[in-house]
């Protein structure tokens, strides 16, 4: 029973080994290569890393749920951008004028609702048409991006609300707002996936869909709920991030789906569904951010980061395959 040995090992902590290895490597290499005198494993630096992980990390938690369920969502980057625009734009709508800072929760609510609805729409289409989630979300990735442009054409949408900026830049117990959101979301999805009936059913559906159907689990609603959750989280990620920056370009969030999927796969989630957990994904998110920062620390540029991350993703897949070869007796098909 060695099936998925590496993904299992990754899920069970190998990703943390990888993170520690990176920390050691970058600390040591930084001594010789880094231009700055600051140590890599500086506490400030690590806290910043956690904060910078938040946008991708929050979405990655939702992606873990969707992929464990046996689907995939390529439209998260576009949903991210839509939610950002809805939040920033709605604060300037005349009907909300005169609310003062009371507009903030309304803008958040509108943005989160938009994300949830768009996610649920993906789920509904997957459920009712039976078209593969890959194609459905590939389509909506284009479609949702089109909606983004409808707001302001190719111009950025900006609105700075200083109360909001203060909130986003606040720190509580030493952690930035974004970091808190990442931790809270991680906990919430961990709870959902390990403790609730819905979460366990999501695993069962991804693992053996026919068995789940025969056991009377309603596959469609479960999938739709999970898509709604990832839509919500994409919006939450946007809301947290743009509260601070206050300006969104219509192309923002592009390629987010790729980063998110990379983090999830690195974290040990099986691409075919049924296996994976958010703790591993959390590790995957941190590992990627660490790699970005670490390579920057030793003077490598973004190009090296892209190269290294791509190759690591392939290497993980390769190792998993090698450990699963059953030996010479295996049927050569």
């Amino acid at each position: 029973m060695k099936s998925g040995a590496v993904s299992k090992a990754l899920a069970n902590g190998a990703i943390w080994g990888f993170i520690i290895l990176q920390l050691i490597f970058f600390s040591v290499a930084g001594e010789y290569l880094s231009l700055s005198d600051k140590a890599f494993m500086d506490w400030e630096n690590m806290l910043l890393l956690l904060k910078q992980s938040a946008p991708i990390g929050i979405i990655a938690m939702g992606m873990t749920l969707v992929m464990v369920n046996g689907n995939i969502d390529l439209s998260v980057g576009a949903t991210f951008a839509i939610a950002a625009i809805v939040m920033l734009d709605s604060m300037t709508w005349p009907i909300f004028a005169g609310l003062g800072d009371g507009v903030i929760p309304i803008a958040w609510l509108l943005a989160l609702t938009a994300g949830t609805v768009l996610g649920a729409l993906n789920g509904l289409i997957v459920w009712k048409t039976g078209v593969d989630a890959f194609i459905v979300t590939l389509g909506s990735m284009l479609g949702y991006r089109g909606i983004v442009f409808m707001f302001n054409g190719e111009n950025p949408t900006s609105h700075l609300n200083w109360t909001l900026v203060d909130f986003a830049e606040a720190e509580f117990l030493g952690l930035a707002t974004a970091s808190w959101f990442l931790l809270l979301v991680t906990f919430a999805i961990w709870f959902l996936m390990t403790k609730t009936v819905h979460g366990r059913n999501a695993y069962a559906i991804g693992d053996n869909r026919e068995a789940a159907v025969n056991a009377g689990i309603r596959v469609g609603p479960h999938m739709m709920i999970n898509f709604a959750i990832i839509g919500f989280l994409a919006a939450l990620s946007a809301v947290v991030f743009y509260s601070e920056s206050g300006s969104v370009n219509p192309n923002d969030g592009q390629l987010y789906e790729l980063w998110v999927i990379t983090a999830v796969v690195l974290g040990g989630t099986k691409i075919t569904g049924g296996a994976g957990n958010v703790i591993g994904t959390f590790g995957g998110v941190i590992a990627i951010q660490l790699l970005r920062k670490g390579l920057g620390h030793i003077g490598a540029d973004t190009s090296t980061v892209n190269l290294v991350i791509g190759l690591i993703l392939i290497a993980v897949l390769f190792l998993d395959r090698q450990l699963n070869v059953k030996g010479k007796e295996e049927l050569k098909v």
């Binding site: 890959f134 691409i271 190009s303 892209n306 190269l307 791509g310 190759l311 993703l313 392939i314």
Partner: peptide, 17 residues
């Protein structure tokens, strides 16, 4: 899917390099 996703990133890095 994963291989070409990885290569998407890796080749982009290669081009930049």
């Amino acid at each position: 899917l994963i291989v070409t996703l990885g290569m998407l990133s890796a080749i982009h890095g290669l081009t930049l390099t």
